[in-house]
Nucleic acid binder design. Structure first.
Length: 502
RNA sequence: GGCGCCGUCGCCAAGUGGUAAGGCAGAGGUCUGCAAAACCUCCAUCCCCGGUUCAAAUCCGGGCGGCGCCUCCA
């Protein structure tokens, strides 16, 4: 059973959805005023792994929402500056986010609500009115505020001791004035030139916590199973979401809170002023692949700070290559794709969605070089893989299980101690692993678009084959070097020559 | 000032009481037209000091070092 660390209780807890095997999960999405950076994507990749674990490893149905925050100070300022409407300004950033998400192999959530959608604004208005009715609000100069003192539970997520706050730790003093500095605005009176809606609470616009509560409650109704986001959102964003939601509905908002630690870049916090707030496009421009970035993001635990470095990208690239190369060797054993590209056809996930099936029984067969059978190696790897992920998504340990299998399989292939059925069984297991990790399939999608057309690669391989048969090694090497310069590597094996992207 | 986290091989990174996973890099060997890929072998006693225990990287205390939140931020 999956165990997740719950920020609310500060403990690891067994997880099961509350109702009908469907996980209701909400993750705070991007504010769409600029292109999301790799730190943002660390969170979204980790949330994606959580989603895939719940779906493929645990066999739950998913109902997940990741929102787009398209109305708050930065989007409004950006739109004003660009002389565009809010929608005109935010549309391209949403498109960019979707593009980068796809590049990183993030599965599309079932719901991607947008704060300014009419349904959502309506829900926000209703939420404010409900809070008003329950005595949690007060109005001042056209704005509606949440009164923290009205909710004894306030602060249970962040556990901040306000009595001991440092003088220097500023408490926001809003220009409208509040009864308590910690009170926050629910519905903000718009200034001239700012977008304004009247959703029931008077003309204005939502405060920056309201949307998430409103959208989550609208989409999921009752208590969410999981609410996720970056660690910086614990306070005040998530704390205030709880206040709004529970103040209005008088029932628990979310059962489990999952927070992803921050990404650092070369030992420094990311910031625009340092110029280290890299985007996915920057990684690609440096000659790296999105699949390697995803791998890097999975190589450490989501609750630990991860230090992004270019050396780390290189290492991730090589590590991932080891897995992919092993799969290519297996395809040779399986037959049908031998001599083709590593990205060959015929790969495809062979496990159906749902919890991975137990390893094929009776796959016993001959021993590997290490004395274990392939069937036993698969069995062990699947067990270790599952145990690792069930332990609060220990992706680093899960990867180790994959590499253990890779080593056993490579040894068996060298010793010619693996038959077609066993190779197929390994490939099925690997494809089950990748349903959760999502990194091999991503690499293959990249390889399907090599820098040199596949037809040309295959023609050159044929040419080189002829040259080699005539022992014209100079010509053969020339072809390989030329392809290498264009980003394609050739490898000669017993079964022929195969190519892969650099 | 309050709350909290972290310090494991050159690099990345698991392991939270039972005697140090995995990856990258490196050294030697096998295979090989070459080049790769692959395999085999080698490569750490866990920041320091004290304590608890039959047993500690893992628990407790004290240092040293790094970081986060308390303010917009994934």
């Amino acid at each position: 059973m999956l165990r997740l660390y719950n920020t609310l209780t500060r403990r690891e807890e067994p997880f099961a959805p509350l109702r009908d095997n469907t996980v209701r999960m909400y993750a705070c999405g991007p504010t769409v005023y600029a292109r999301a950076h790799i730190g943002n994507f660390r969170t979204f990749v980790c949330v994606d792994v959580l989603r895939r674990t719940l779906k493929y490893l645990c066999g739950h149905a998913m109902h997940e929402a990741v929102n787009y925050t398209d109305v708050e100070d930065k989007t409004i300022a950006g739109a004003l500056k660009a002389g565009q409407s809010l929608r005109e300004f935010t549309d391209p950033w949403i498109a960019a986010f979707r593009e980068d998400s796809a590049q990183l192999g993030i599965e599309a959530p079932e719901e991607t609500p947008r704060a300014t959608d009419l349904d959502n604004l309506t829900a926000m208005g209703e939420l404010v009115l409900a809070l008003e009715k329950n005595g949690h609000t007060y109005r001042r100069d056209g704005s509606v505020y949440f009164r923290i003192a009205s909710l004894p539970d306030y602060g249970k997520l962040a556990r901040l001791d306000h009595a001991g706050m440092k003088d220097g730790a500023r408490v926001d003093v809003d220009e409208y004035g509040k009864d308590d500095p910690r009170d926050f605005v629910l519905w903000k009176a718009s200034k001239p030139g700012e977008p304004s809606w009247d959703a029931g609470a008077g003309p204005g616009r939502p405060g920056w916590h309201l949307e998430c509560s409103a959208m989550a409650l609208r989409l999921f109704g009752g208590p969410l199973d999981i609410h996720a986001g970056g660690i910086d959102l614990i306070f005040p964003h998530h704390e205030n979401e709880i206040a709004q939601s529970e103040g209005a509905t008088k029932q628990p908002f979310a059962r489990v809170w999952v927070h992803v630690e921050h990404l650092f870049v070369e030992n420094e916090k990311m910031s625009k002023s340092l110029g280290n707030d890299f985007r996915v496009a920057d990684i690609i421009a440096r000659g790296h692949r999105a699949s390697a970035l995803r791998y890097l993001l999975l190589s450490s635990h989501y609750r630990k700070q991860l230090n992004f470095t270019w050396a780390g990208m290189d290492q991730a690239e090589e590590s991932l290559r080891r897995i992919v190369d092993c799969l290519a060797r297996l395809e040779d054993v399986s037959g049908g794709t031998g001599g083709r590209g590593i990205n060959g056809r015929g790969g495809g996930p062979s496990s159906p969605p749902g919890p991975p099936e137990p390893p094929p029984s009776g796959v016993g067969g001959p021993s590997t070089a290490r004395g274990a059978t392939i069937g036993a190696s698969i069995d062990t790897a699947q067990r270790m893989f599952r145990e690792a992920l069930e332990c609060d998504l220990n992706t680093a340990a899960a990867l180790a299980a994959v590499f253990d299998l890779v080593r056993d399989v490579n040894a068996a292939i060298d010793a010619k101690q693996i038959d077609r059925d066993e190779a197929d069984a390994v490939r099925a297991a690997m494809s089950g692993f990748d349903q959760v990790l999502g990194v091999v399939s991503l690499r293959r999608a990249e390889d399907a678009r090599p820098p040199v057309p596949v037809d040309e690669i295959e023609r050159l391989i044929e040419e080189r084959k002829t040259a080699r048969q005539q022992r014209d090694f100079a010509a053969a090497d020339r072809i390989r070097h030329e392809l290498a310069d264009r980003g394609i590597l050739l490898e000669d094996n017993a079964g022929g020559t195969r190519w892969k992207r650099k």
